[in-house]
Simulated assay, not measured.
Amino acid sequence: MRPRAAAAAACAVLGLGLIGGAVTGSWLAGDGGGAARDRFTAADSLWHSEPVDQLFPPTVDGTGAGPGGADRTWTRIAVAPDSGCAHAFDPLLRKALAPVGCRRLLRATYTDATESYVTTVGLLFTKADPAAMSGLAKRFRDEHLSSRTDLLPRPYAAKGTVAAGFGDAQRASWTISVLTDVPVVAFSVSGWADGRTVNTPQPAADATRAGATSAPAQAGLGNEAQGLADRVARRLRQTAGAATEKPS
């Protein structure tokens, strides 16, 4: 009887450990729990409840964001009026994003410290629930939609700035991230500030790889797009998390 009791106790402990590990893993991954749901819900209203300087700071520090780990600093030169999504994406990209809807679109354009490059970064606030966002993220991964040159975000070219000539033909590198912990698609697109035309834009994931030899890669435009988009998305998540915290 003693060996049987010991075996039963061991199985019980193991079972509790597996259950606890699964719950902990789910919580860490943001797959469930009240806090994760609260953050997702809170993020839905940030487009009108947060000041523009919170979502798109006047200056963004990119420590280690440049080629070879070089530091970057981006300065905001223009903020687009919040709008719908009708003219912000190539037609096929707009179609791919349609299942999650477009509640509101926010965009801002930045330049680097030398004013050699310009980058438009955007936050598309969707109408989707967590399941729909996860489904769209899976589709983007499985079908490699973020690397297709016929599915690009469009820049915001502000008159009277170094980005005045930043149009569709000037797009050099870009990134698109379907976030699943908040109802947002974050994206950015970069190019040269002198208005030069780019025949073959390259996704940031490819342009930032070691040994990449394309013009956008050599200029660090993949780093510009990826680095700025990552930091704006991170700031959005932090803001959504802070909005759910209860005062002590």
Rank of each mutant, 00 (worst) to 15 (best):
G68E: 09
G68N: 10
G69T: 08
A70W: 02
R72P: 04
R72V: 08
R72C: 03
W74S: 10
W74T: 06
T75P: 05
R76N: 08
R76M: 08
I77R: 00
I77K: 00
I77N: 03
I77L: 07
I77S: 03
I77A: 02
A78T: 00
A78G: 00
A78S: 10
A78F: 03
V79W: 04
P81N: 12
P81F: 01
P81A: 15
G84Y: 06
A86S: 15
A86E: 12
A86P: 05
H87Y: 04
H87C: 03
A88S: 13
A88D: 13
F89L: 15
D90A: 03
P91V: 03
L93K: 06
R94C: 04
R94E: 09
K95G: 04
A96E: 10
A96W: 01
L97C: 08
L97F: 06
A98N: 09
A98T: 01
P99T: 08
V100M: 01
G101F: 12
G101V: 02
C102T: 01
C102G: 00
C102F: 05
R103P: 01
R103H: 10
R104K: 14
R104I: 07
R104E: 13
L105Y: 02
L105H: 03
L105K: 08
L105C: 03
L106M: 13
L106N: 05
L106W: 00
L106C: 06
R107C: 01
R107G: 00
R107V: 01
A108L: 04
A108W: 01
T109H: 11
Y110D: 04
Y110K: 02
Y110P: 00
Y110M: 11
T111E: 14
T111C: 09
T111K: 02
T111W: 02
